[in-house]
């Protein structure tokens, strides 16, 4: 039984029209699935549905075979921006999810320290977010997501976690994340608009195209296990196919925007 299953899911806001339509996919336990698509195509909407920030969708979303509404929260969410609270030090920021539990303060601190040590931020406990670099802040944000996962959440949702970083730091962070998720016993979904990042990190890539967004392709990328594998003929061909798919979608989006603007 899959951990998460979307069946013909559609969603839109009352004021803004449909965002996603006929979305069907499933995620097995322990899988790492990437979702790619153009900016603003509706990738994050899928995460909003999984975290139940949005309701009133069409179709069905099931968690372990049960409707998502009946299951408790299943996901630990890492947003695009780190969203660390500037008045809290790093340790207290990371420990924030544990404050939902009635847990002795000492245990909370000890668990948060472990998470910080796991992401290589030992020694930064007392620092304020403003004292850390962009990459370190994202690692702190990842540690906070791990703390949320400790609340019994089986699924990690990572929404373009490295999009705000420069390319060198992003490459370093991708390698770092690859090691982290491989050592975690968690299911991971990753949103990105970077095809290389998706192929490198995920075992499967879901491509969203069109408006409203629907799944254009689900590609197996499990053969790419390291950065070197990105240059094998098989990987290069897959990358080209995905690039073509996204480029065609971008042309359609541009034409659609022009038609809308002309109509105004």
């Amino acid at each position: 039984m899959p951990l998460l299953e979307f069946n013909n899911v559609g969603f839109g806001y009352k004021t803004g029209g449909r965002i996603v339509d006929n979305i069907s996919f499933s995620v097995e336990k322990g899988e790492l699935v990437a979702i790619i698509g153009a900016s603003g195509c509706g990738k994050s909407t899928l995460f909003r549905l999984i975290t139940r920030l949005e309701a009133n969708y069409d179709g069905s979303i099931e968690v372990n075979g049960e409707p998502i509404e009946k299951s408790g929260a299943i996901a630990a969410f890492m947003p695009q921006k780190d969203l660390l609270l500037p008045w809290r030090n790093i340790l207290k920021n990371v420990a924030l999810p544990l404050e939902t539990l009635k847990m002795p303060k000492q245990e909370r601190i000890s668990r948060a320290k472990n998470a910080l040590s796991r992401v290589g931020l030992s020694g930064c406990e007392e620092k304020k977010p403003s004292e850390l670099s962009g990459g370190m802040r994202q690692r702190a944000s990842f540690a906070r997501t791990l703390m949320t996962a400790e609340l019994g959440r089986e699924l990690l949702l990572l929404d373009e976690p490295f999009s705000a970083l420069d390319s060198i730091t992003r490459t370093q962070m991708q390698d770092w994340l690859l090691k982290q998720v491989r050592s975690l016993d968690k299911t991971v979904m990753l949103i990105t608009h970077d095809i290389d990042e998706a192929l490198l990190l995920a075992g499967r890539v879901i491509v969203l195209c069109d408006k409203p967004a629907s799944i254009a392709r689900q590609a197996d990328s499990s053969m790419i296990k390291s950065r070197e594998h990105l240059f094998t003929p098989q990987a290069i061909q897959l990358k080209e196919e995905l690039t073509q798919l996204l480029s065609a979608d971008a042309v359609l989006r541009e034409a659609d925007t022009e038609v809308t603007e002309n109509a105004r």
């Binding site: 920030l53 929260a73 996901a75 947003p79 969203l83 609270l85 924030l96 999810p97 404050e99 939902t100």
Partner: peptide, 26 residues
């Protein structure tokens, strides 16, 4: 307060009162 901060706290499972005390007041 940023809406995304509030939403992140909701996904962590914090109640409205906790969000008020830990986010809005500071």
């Amino acid at each position: 307060t940023k809406r995304e901060n509030e939403e992140l706290m909701k996904t962590m499972g914090l109640s409205s009162l906790q969000i008020f005390l830990k986010l809005k007041i500071p």
